[in-house]
Design a protein around this nucleic acid. Structure first.
Lengths: 336, 336
DNA sequence: TTGTACGCGTTATCAT
DNA sequence: ATGATAACGCGTACAA
């Protein structure tokens, strides 16, 4: 009833050659006459033979698969990274395992464990939340890893990094607020497990100290980096500091939430409160008022990460130079 | 230098038992004394042994992997499906291969080919664009398949379907426009390769004929189902039929584009032109004016699809009852 | 140019 | 309760 999957043996038998010759043809290797090559190709096509990647993986010790681990694909920022990465993977002949960690450290561990069992050839870890002590020993076992939005103290062979310069971005945002004459500048930070969030907080802090205004912990509030979380966080912030005249937000989703909170408390954006987000997801230019934000191209990040990873797979000893991406302050209505 | 991956043989040797006993322990099978079980577990943990899923796959003929094929993860609608599917897959112990087809039939073929080589246990195909003649022979070879937004003429064993009732949704939208007193109702359709698009067009057509107004091909324009594509399509539509007073759009992204086009041609939404989209992506409630749309829960679709698939994997002979999801007309500002 | 023998790491089968 | 042996489907090394 259930058709069995054709194997090299089947093709070999039908063509009247050895399995080895079939294998050579399937892998485009030399050493087969053009004639038999053609005949084998025909028969293979005819019976629908495709080499089993599983058997092939067992024999060659590489699976042609790559793991992509991220907090949440349904977040547009990560979705675009995934798209960019998958496109590049496809071009290079790799299949992609997608795993969401839902911000849960246990799930992240379990994700890496699963990938280890799958014997992936490499992994891209986007915004990993695990602590260094537990993360490093795990990823060092992988053949190749690219970390997105996570730094490495010292370069290590087989591990590359791509980071957005969040510190700089935050400084740019704060300086923009200052140029607009704002002095009570709040910050809606992300989860404190997020490296990006910590870096943005740091940049915000530095810029305020440098300006002479100084840093005030009261002006900082953490939130879940989604629209609703941003709205709630901004409400808490505005209640505590009603005289706020600007908010720098962890990402665009939370910034949109913050703008909602302003609306709900009868504050005009940008007249009463200016708002700047981060990431420049498509939503940013579609909301009203349109959101000023720190632009980065996540699709390109995903693509670059995958390119770096395949290089790393092909040259395992290298310690690639860390890539740092400069965000661009894109001004729209919320902080003109 | 490079540590070799521990194998059952290593564990067996260190514990002083046979590989088979180790295998039994790793798979929680009976027939091992509690004492040796504990000892094996300890040693395995100690040397960091994890069974290779590749070798296991070769031996058992199933890979614990599932393929997820969709046009584009960076589209929020599909991203949520992916999230729902991955969550469910994780719970059931499956890993997910993600493949984007970018609306390209060749890439879709190639995706299915890749998955076949990877010996997946099952696949979820979301909005497949391939014609029936080429799609069916391919998916019939897979152990189990769930089609999302694609119908099956007759139920087939091993293949399940989940469809949004697009026809009904379109009818609801048109009827709403009629209730609002609109009579020149346009339709911004998606790619005509899209089954959903064809079904929505059909529902639109039926509702207009039923109402006595009749169907006018001039009022229909196809577009690329993104914000920009919607904007361009709406411009073409409005140029051809300047007296349009309502537009039913293929999806929310194109609807947002259509609203932009209205803005750019000095038409007020909803006063001059009412707009209804489809999918109810998060963006819909965040744009101004807020978008009326046909609500469906893509996360739940992904989750249901995966649940159906695993049932199918466990009971391959079944022909599951087709699932049809009713969209809900969610009224916001663009068509109050 | 073509073929043979073996190994990859695991599970299934059949023994003990 | 435990073990020996043979698959699983392919690639590699070496032989012809």
């Amino acid at each position: 009833m259930i058709k069995k999957r054709p194997t090299v043996a089947d093709v070999a038998r039908l063509t009247g050659v050895s399995m080895m010759t079939v294998s050579r043809v399937m892998n485009d290797m030399p050493g087969v006459s053009e004639e038999t090559r053609q005949r084998i190709r025909e028969i293979a096509e005819q019976i629908g033979f495709r080499p089993s990647q599983i058997a092939r993986g067992l024999a060659t010790r590489h699976s042609a698969t790559i793991g992509l681990v991220m907090p949440d694909v349904s977040n547009p920022f990560f979705a675009q990274i995934a798209r960019g990465a998958e496109d590049a993977a496809y071009e290079q002949g790799y299949s992609l395992f997608l795993i969401n960690t839902a911000e849960s450290p246990e799930r992240e561990r379990s994700a890496l464990d699963t990938l280890w069992q799958q014997e992936i050839d490499g992994a891209i870890l986007s915004s990993p939340r695990l602590s260094t002590d537990v993360l490093y020993p795990i990823i060092e076992r992988f053949p190749a890893v690219v970390l997105v939005n996570r730094e490495l103290e010292k370069p290590r062979p087989g591990i590359g990094t791509i980071n957005v310069d969040d510190r700089l971005g935050a400084q740019m945002a704060v300086k923009k607020f200052l140029a607009l004459g704002r002095r009570r500048i709040g910050h809606l930070a992300g989860p404190d497990t997020s490296v990006s969030s910590r870096r943005r907080l740091e940049g915000y802090r530095e810029a305020l100290i440098e300006s002479g205004i100084g840093f005030d912990q009261n002006l900082v509030e953490h939130c879940i980096p989604l629209t609703e979380g941003g709205c709630e966080g901004a409400h808490r912030l505005l209640e505590r500091c009603p005289d706020l005249d600007a908010i720098f937000c962890f990402n665009d989703l939370s910034a949109v939430g913050a703008m909602q909170a302003c609306l709900e408390t009868k504050r005009a954006v940008p007249e009463d409160v200016a708002v700047i987000g981060a990431d420049d997801i498509p939503l940013a230019s579609l909301v009203t008022p349109r959101l000023s934000t720190l632009h980065v191209d996540p699709n390109s990040i995903g693509c670059q990460a995958m390119t770096m990873l395949t290089e790393l797979i092909n040259h395992p000893k290298r310690s690639p130079k860390p890539v740092v991406i400069q965000p661009e302050l894109t001004l729209r209505q919320s902080a003109p």
